[in-house]
Amino acid sequence: MEKNKKKGPQKDSGKESLSRRKFFVSAGNAAIGIAALGSLGVTLDFLSPKVLLELPRRFVVGMLANMQPNSVTFDAEHRLIVFRDKQGYFYALSAVCTHLGCIVEWKETGIPGHPEGVIACPCHGSIFNKTGDVIRGPAPHSLDRFKMYLEDEKIIVDMTETVSEEEMILKV
């Protein structure tokens, strides 16, 4: 009998664990938590700029008539190297080194084994071949390759996405 009496109220108190005070405390804590999470999100949103005064990523790189076969054009503003091969096709490589972001240079004289010319990074010595593949150096992968278009005799580069070595070729 005594055992039952003891068990009774204990069970009840177990069920009634959510007292008025406890309810308001947890409701308050939850509200503070939600407000804190929300303010974190709003702050992160505030920290990412909505309008960037950066150069457009799709632009006219030059007129078809002005870019001679077997030429290399360096666009310093957009950090881009545009090649027009002997056969007449175009392709564009990013001039930003894939190692730590320095601007690479086109070296016409090349290096031993690569007389056709190489692309070299002045910061940490990475060297890429004429189509952007790594020959040596700390660069982890080839230079970014971009899709090119021909519209009204204008050569257009789209830097919004990188493409494969085959896709980057623009035959004219």
């Binding site: 992160l44 920290l47 990412s48 700029p49 960037l52 005064l53 950066e54």
Partner: peptide, 13 residues
Amino acid sequence: RFLLLGGNEIGEY
């Protein structure tokens, strides 16, 4: 990187 630079490259921000 985007938050730190306030953009995709180093600028005014």
